[in-house]
Design a protein around this nucleic acid. Structure first.
Lengths: 338, 338
DNA sequence: CATCACCTGTATAACGTTATAGAGCCGCGC
DNA sequence: GCGCGGCTCTATAACGTTATACAGGTGATG
């Protein structure tokens, strides 16, 4: 089908090996022959067969980014960054959608998939420490975002507890007292939900506010629809909250919708805060106050770490890295930043 | 590194070829030996090296979906469908981000990238008929969404002109007379923008309404920010529009935001319609009326066509397929569907 | 002048798989 | 009793690349 090394070698009147050396500079080649070979390459339009190259090298140049929801803008934005970073380092990034399914996550961890992928960046939501430790596949693994700790892999995440603290402190600072949380999973199924609830409770306690279990709403998933339904339930309480902290921006946006439908004004009646800083939250009415993780840092660091491991480089520093976040005050809490 | 065919062959006491036959059923194998081999496979945990397989077969099992913006929910939703469909057919789908960059689209069309990919689904925005015709790479190509016609490739899209008609007819039906369009590109840079503007003009004419150039707003890109800015400009006109049709939902959502900021009520003062039916539009305040393409059909059809071509199957029917769309009436035009 | 090191370039053996040609065996029919 | 077809299985040649070992030539050094 395509032009291969042999064709170039014939055309340029040199050996196969020399062409290979010109192409990837493994060995020095004389200036005159290099030019002849280069000319042949240009004329015939050669590009290496990556399958063969990777068979020989033992690497494919492919890395995967597995996320629980492709349609969550947070992951789309993260993916865009990671794809660019990987491309810059000569790798191709494959998006994988686990759909928040436990089996899918397990299959990815040590499935046959692994043979074609040099390494995996995984945002786990249904598996924990044991499953990760039981992993047999040898290729490097970088975890992002959720709470699987004490495993021998790189892990990049924000401090979920601290992030919750910041959100709640802000709500308290603007005078709210009945603060709800939307997006807890009853069984602690999703680790980061657990952590964010913990931060919520700790911050309430620190502010001297009572913890009211009825103000913590569980959800099936973490989309807009889930946030909307949970908010409706909260509004149906005899004594509804005066502020809501959502597990993520999508949930918070769903809550905004429910509040609008019910005729409550935000932030006058109810203030709303999310996490993720997705672009959408800058265009809602009102705009959404949020905890903004440094997506660029997370995406780039995850890719760089993974590739460093693949290439066997020494990686300095601890396995677990907590990336910075900041509170972006917007209209939904009534005090927009400048 | 991994377990390979040879290991299995030794363990089971058979030849390499027999193991291969057991694995992919190319030739019949006796029941007794099949079981012995299968047992060895299970014990040693063999999975084929896809690189080697693909080198031999000449295919990689990878297809790419190249879109202009990963962070546009329309493409994220489409990608989710396409990934699932490809996986079901035994292929892995790689997401590629052209960032609406002409060079990136060209590189994809016949770049070296192609050597690792069996086929490409491309949503072109900066290239046209000539560039596609000049393509030299041999692997199958399926075009989606935009207007590159009369090329020897499958093309799956909605009828952009008809979609615009439907939107404008709806606005006229609810009594609007000064209807603006947001998201034209002055130079006709993006083909579908051109088509949607044409549908807009035709529908205005059919309704006996004058075409007012000042009500057609160009934008640099097609995101929320672009829609918001364009809407602000339109509102600054002496005689602002009573309805707005956005190039896509993101643009329309940006317009909603600008209207809210300026204190205009939607749909009472200005009605708004978009295209794409992204989930976000079901949660805005007000919810967004939109032209909904059949994303499931587009995604599945594109993948199925591409794989059929890769596998050399005969594909019946014309190259160009126009998939259905429907108008979803929501609050932004004041007449929600049941 | 012989030795050695060095610099270019070449021949070739992998990498792990699949497809082709063919070898052995058995039973059937002439 | 011999050939022949059918059934299993095997040996082996690719696929296109990279890395290793080596060959030839040149210039410097003892």
């Amino acid at each position: 089908m395509g032009v291969n090394l042999k064709d170039i070698a014939q055309r340029a009147g040199v050996s196969l090996a020399t062409v290979s050396n010109v192409v990837n500079g493994y060995r020095p080649v004389g200036e005159r022959t290099r030019q002849r070979v280069q000319q042949a390459i240009d004329e015939l339009g050669y590009s290496p067969n990556l399958g063969a190259r990777h068979l020989r090298r033992g690497r494919t140049g492919l890395i995967a980014l597995a996320v629980p929801e492709l349609t969550n803008p947070y992951f789309a934005e993260l993916a865009e960054i990671a794809i660019a970073e990987a491309a810059g380092l000569g790798y191709t990034l494959v998006m994988e959608n686990t759909a928040a399914d436990r089996e899918a996550e397990l299959a990815l961890l040590d499935g046959s998939r692994q043979r074609i992928i040099d390494g995996l960046i995984l945002s786990p939501v249904r598996i924990g420490r044991e499953e990760v430790l039981a992993r047999t596949a040898g290729s490097p693994l970088v975890l992002i975002g959720e709470g699987v700790y004490d495993v021998p892999h790189d892990h990049i995440a924000i401090d979920n507890v601290a992030a919750s603290h910041a959100a709640i402190r802000h709500l308290v600072a603007i005078g709210r007292r009945r603060i709800a949380f939307i997006g807890a999973t009853p069984g602690g199924d999703r680790q980061s939900a657990h952590l964010r609830v913990r931060g919520y409770r700790e911050a309430l306690a620190a502010a001297g506010l009572p913890y009211r279990p009825r103000l913590v709403a569980g959800t099936d998933a973490f989309g807009r629809l889930d946030g909307m339904r949970a908010m409706r339930d909260l509004l149906a309480l005899g004594d509804p909250p005066d502020a809501v902290f959502g597990y993520n921006d999508l949930v918070a946006i769903g809550a905004l919708r429910a509040l609008a439908e019910a005729g409550h004004r935000v932030p006058e009646h109810v203030a709303v805060v999310g996490i993720d800083d997705i672009e959408e939250g800058r265009f809602t009415a009102p705009t959404l106050t949020t905890i903004a993780p440094d997506k660029r840092e997370i995406g780039r660091l995850a890719v760089r770490r993974l590739i460093a491991r693949i290439e066997g480089a020494e990686v300095a520093g601890p396995l677990t890295v907590q990336t910075p976040f900041r509170l972006l005050r917007r209209e939904s809490t009534g005090t927009p930043d400048a």
